[in-house]
Amino acid sequence: MYYLEEKRITMAEKIQKREEEILNIIKEYWAKHKYSPTIREIVKKSNINSTSTVMRYLYRLKEKRLIDWHPKMPRTLHIKEKTPC
C-alpha cells in the first residue's frame, strides 16, 4: 500500500510566497491606477484577512529594502528599483 505524501512547505516558504503575492498586488495596482493601493485594498485582493497581518508583511518587505513608504501619508507605498551591481 502506497501513501501519497503531501508537499509540506516550511513557514519561511509560506512567508516568502505571501510576500511575493503582496509585491505582485502592489505592482499590478500601480500599473493599472498609477498610485499605490491602501492596506485594505491589499487585504481584499490577497488571501489574508487582517490588515495587521498585511502590515506585518509590508514591514518585512521594507526591512528587505524591497518597498518603502512615507509615514502618515496615504498611498505612498512604492517598490524600490533594484540597482545593477
Results as ranks from 00 to 15, higher is better:
Arg56Pro: 03
Trp69Leu: 02
Leu77Arg: 02
Lys32Ile: 08
Ser46Gly: 09
Ser50Cys: 12
Arg40Phe: 07
Arg18Lys: 13
Thr51Ile: 10
Thr76Asn: 03
Trp30Asp: 13
Ser50Thr: 09
Lys62Trp: 01
Ile39Asn: 11
Glu41Leu: 10
His78Asn: 06
Met55Asp: 04
Arg56Tyr: 12
Lys34Glu: 15
Arg40Cys: 05
Tyr35Ile: 08
Lys64Gln: 14
Leu77Glu: 03
Ile48Leu: 14
Met55Tyr: 08
Lys64Phe: 02
Arg60Ala: 07
Trp69Gln: 02
Glu28Ala: 12
Asn49Gly: 12
Lys64Pro: 02
Glu21Thr: 07
Lys32Asp: 07
Lys44Arg: 14
Leu23Ser: 05
Tyr57Leu: 12
Glu21Ser: 11
Ile67Val: 14
Lys80Thr: 01
Lys32Gln: 12
Thr38Val: 08
Lys44Ala: 14
Glu21Asn: 13
Ser36Val: 10
Asp68Arg: 00
Ser46Trp: 10
Asp68Leu: 00
Arg18Val: 03
Pro37Glu: 08
Leu23Tyr: 04
Pro37Phe: 12
Ile67Tyr: 02
Leu66Val: 02
Lys80Ile: 08
Arg60Asp: 05
Pro74Leu: 10
Ile39Gly: 06
Lys17Pro: 00
Pro74Met: 09
Leu23Thr: 03
Glu21Tyr: 00
Leu58Ala: 06
Leu66Ser: 01
Trp30Asn: 10
Gln16His: 02
Glu63Leu: 04
Ile22Ser: 12
Glu19His: 12
Thr76Arg: 04
Lys34Asn: 15
Pro84Val: 01
Pro37Lys: 15
His70Tyr: 05
Asp68Val: 00
Leu66Arg: 05
Met55Gln: 13
Pro74Gln: 14
Arg18Glu: 13
Lys72Ile: 01
Pro74Cys: 06
Thr53Met: 15
Tyr59Val: 04
Glu41Gly: 07
Arg60Phe: 04
Pro71Lys: 05
Ile39Met: 09
Thr83Gly: 00
Lys80Ser: 00
Tyr59Phe: 05
Lys32Ser: 10
Glu20Tyr: 03
Tyr35Trp: 09
Tyr35Pro: 05
Lys34Ala: 12
Asn49Cys: 07
Ile79Ala: 01
Ile67Ser: 02
Leu23Lys: 06
Ile26His: 08
His78Gly: 02
Trp69Ser: 03
His78Val: 02
Tyr29His: 14
Thr53Ala: 15
Ile25Glu: 05
Arg75Val: 05
Val43Trp: 09
Lys62Gln: 14
Cys85Ala: 00
